[in-house]
Each structure stands twice: as structure tokens, then as C-alpha cells.
Amino acid sequence: MFGTEPILRIDNLHKTYRKHAVEVPVLRGVSLSVALAEFLAVVGMSGSGKSTMLHLMGILDSPDQGAVFLDGKRIDDLPAKQRDKLRNGTFGYIFQFYHLLPELTMLENVMAPAMIQHSIMGWMWNRRTIRKKAAELIERVGLSHRITHRPRELSGGEMQRAAIARALMNDPRVLLADEPTGNLDSANGQQIIALLRELNRDGLTIVMVTHHVELTHEADRIIRLTDGKVETETPLERSSAVQESEPATV
């Protein structure tokens, strides 16, 4: 069960992509709050602005207008160094295309956020603890037998599970998942959703963007974005019922 205090809040976010003289407005004033330990699913058609919204929430990008708040403090206008720190320690990211570093083994990929966090001295001092923790996370996502493998040697589902382990490495407070099942078959997709739900039950706040509505049944709340605006917001108690009655969006 999640709390009532919002951990993450976005207020009137606007974002327009510009290429030469062409302007494409993607977000047109999106506001929402994410409660602590909530599992929020954001659905919408392609181009509805859900991934852009996720990037702005995780301060991977800056809004043209509006603000992002973490624990009530504005974070989108922080200096670059502090935003880097937040991306490294507070937010965990999962992407549709896994985005593992191809030169590193799975263990090294999982340890990457900790490597970024620590200086060489810090790394040398804590390397055993970090390695142990990474191995535990890999075990938790069920990939202990693949620990020394490179990403190209893993299947899509394995890569996504490795990406989840990497996202959990620095104990993030919010996990931002951008179409985590978008590149997986149904069985693997279900496994990933089950894993996310398990993590959520352990207290992790999750914001998941997807266009597979059938995979949102584990979410506490569903938000539908249309043309850069929040079209509907399904409260917790209704989310399961809505999924059953509403058609899936593609």
C-alpha cells in the first residue's frame, strides 16, 4: 500500500521539440503527483508525450514551462551536478531497448551506477560490498548464471532484467520505466511486470510508461495521456475495473 504524501510531482509541464523551423508541441500542461510507494502506469498512444513526460520527471530533459518537484522541492532547475547526482542515486531508469553498455559484462553493467557514484578510491574501498550487492540483485532477477555474459549474449528478457538490476543498484527512491515490455514477448513482458510489482510491494515507487494496457493490471493508478495532456486518471480502486472495460491503446 502506498502513502498519501507525493514523492514526485509535476506541475503544468510544457515541452515542444524543435527541428529547424518545425515546432512539435509534445506536452501541453501536464500535472500529476506520484505518491510514495505507488505504482503508477502512464498509457497513451505513440506521440502522446508519455516518454517525454517520464524524461522530464527523471530530469533527463528540461521542460519549456512548468516544474518538477521531489519531496516538495523543485528539481528541474537544479545545477547540472545536483541533477547528475539525483539521476545517479534517486532515480532508476529502465528503457524499452534496455540500453546496456555493450562493452561491459552484465555484472559490470549492473555495477555501473555504483562506479559512477564512487571515485576510484571510494570504489577500491567498497568494491567487495558493491560486487556482492550487484550479485544479489542479479540473483534476484534470476540471472546468476549469466553474470559474466555481455549484453549481446543475452535474450531480450534477460537484458531487461539486467537493466532492472542496474536501476536498483544505488537504491533509488523512484523507478522510471519507459516501455519496459515494449520489446519483449508476452511471457517475458509478464515476468518483467511481476518483477516490478514485487519491487513496488517492497516499497519502491514506480512510474511506468506503456502502451500495453493489458500489462497495467498490476498498477495502483493509471493515467492516460492524449496529445500532451492528461485525458483521464483512473483512481486506485477503479484501475482494475477500467482495464477490463477499456480497449487497449496502441
Binding site: G58, L60, A80, K81, D84, K85, L86, R87, N88, G89, Y93, F95, H99, L100, L101, P102, E103, A112, P113, I116, Q117, R166
Partner: peptide
């Protein structure tokens, strides 16, 4: 893309 991944993981400029 690797640079993007590193930045999303908190790597600084």
C-alpha cells in the same frame, strides 16, 4: 547511445 546511457545513470558532463 552509450553516452546517453551513462548520462541517464548520472555520469556528469
Amino acid at each position: 547511445r552509450d553516452i546517453g546511457i551513462l548520462k541517464s545513470l548520472g555520469a556528469s558532463r
